[in-house]
């Protein structure tokens, strides 16, 4: 681009010069560095504390001790099960709800938004009592109770994640297209909507899992042994081990979420090749350039022209 080849001078179109780009780059780096430090310094400090041995040496003793504590491992397993259950219930309940509200009852959209915010203002104890009253004893006496509660408590965030994705789709057209091609409602939902809501659904699942894995107050209140409550218990006796567990849990959660996130983005990115050119509209005279870039010649479509943009 011409704007990038004229250092030190503002172009006639007012585009930033190279010097301005450089300053902007530095500013971005500083902001990113500050943000990274804000999050990483406590984690690094915790890791250092957990790994510090006698006389300034470092040891993995605190970390390896984790894997020899059956109660801790069981609590971790319980928390993972609860969080996966909560995420599953969230997706099964909220996705059709959001789709239906947007498709058939758009007037209720505001009401749903308000309704899903209620867990933020209703005291946790009230939610607990409500769920206690609504489900049989077999359910409320098991960790399933926690999963149900986490669905409600994470709903202000998870519903927004799903609803944002649903609203970003041309829902009516996609549904009509699917139906007109012979898909039943469940098929339309499964084959058309869910794949296109993938990112939103993963976000909702992340939020619910993250919330469930870290929730302490309600699990402690209801005397369930989950990962956070067990961590708290260990912390009262062996601080270095508890710190090691915390760091380990943080890294593990981050790795899982990153993995899921990459998985979610893979399919869409797969459609594009680096350096490929996208057709995004009409405009005369650029078709040959597009075809040259893509290595395609389209003899069947003379006169079809494209505007182009580079895929980074």
């Amino acid at each position: 681009m011409a704007a990038l080849t004229l250092p030190g001078r503002r172009t006639t179109r007012g585009a930033p010069t190279r010097a301005e780009f450089r300053v902007g780059g530095w500013a971005r780096s500083i902001v990113l560095l500050c943000t990274a430090m804000y999050f990483l310094v406590p984690v690094v400090a915790s890791a250092r504390y957990a790994l510090e041995g006698a006389h300034g040496t470092y040891t993995l003793a605190a970390v390896t001790a984790l894997f020899h504590d059956p109660v801790l491992l069981q609590s971790l397993l319980t928390s993972v099960e609860i969080s996966l259950g909560a995420a599953g219930i969230t997706l099964v309940l909220l996705t059709p709800t959001s789709v239906w509200v947007n498709l058939r009852m758009p007037r209720l959209r505001r009401a749903m938004e308000s309704l899903t915010l209620l867990p933020l203002v209703v005291p946790v104890v009230v939610v607990v009592l409500g769920i206690y009253g609504a489900f049989p004893t077999a359910v409320v006496a098991s960790p399933v109770l926690l999963a149900l509660e986490y669905v409600v408590l994470a709903m202000p965030y998870s519903y927004r994640a799903i609803d944002g994705g649903v609203q970003a789709l041309d829902l009516h057209t996609l549904v009509d297209a699917g139906r007109s091609l012979g898909a039943s409602w469940p098929e339309t939902f499964r084959r058309v909507l869910v794949p296109n809501l993938r990112t939103s659904l993963l976000s909702a699942a992340f939020i619910t899992i993250a919330y469930s894995l870290g929730e302490f107050a309600m699990a402690n209140l209801l005397s369930f042994t989950t990962f956070p409550t067990e961590l708290f218990q260990i912390g009262t006796e062996q601080v270095d081990e508890a710190t090691a567990v915390s760091v380990f849990a943080l890294v593990l959660t981050f790795a899982v979420l990153l993995g899921l996130s990459l998985l979610g983005g893979r399919r869409r990115a797969g459609g594009l090749r680096r350096g490929a050119t996208l057709s995004v509209g009409g405009g005369d005279g650029i078709a040959a350039e597009v075809d040259a870039v893509l290595g395609h010649v389209d003899p069947g479509v003379p006169g079809i022209v494209h505007e182009t943009r580079e895929v980074p």
Partner: peptide
């Protein structure tokens, strides 16, 4: 008869291709 059983083909005003499919 529901739309999926009428055996019709439809092209819409809005771009209606499924974004996740080639």
């Amino acid at each position: 008869v529901p739309p999926n059983r009428r055996g019709l083909g439809m092209v819409f005003q809005a771009y209606s291709l499924f974004p996740n499919m080639t």
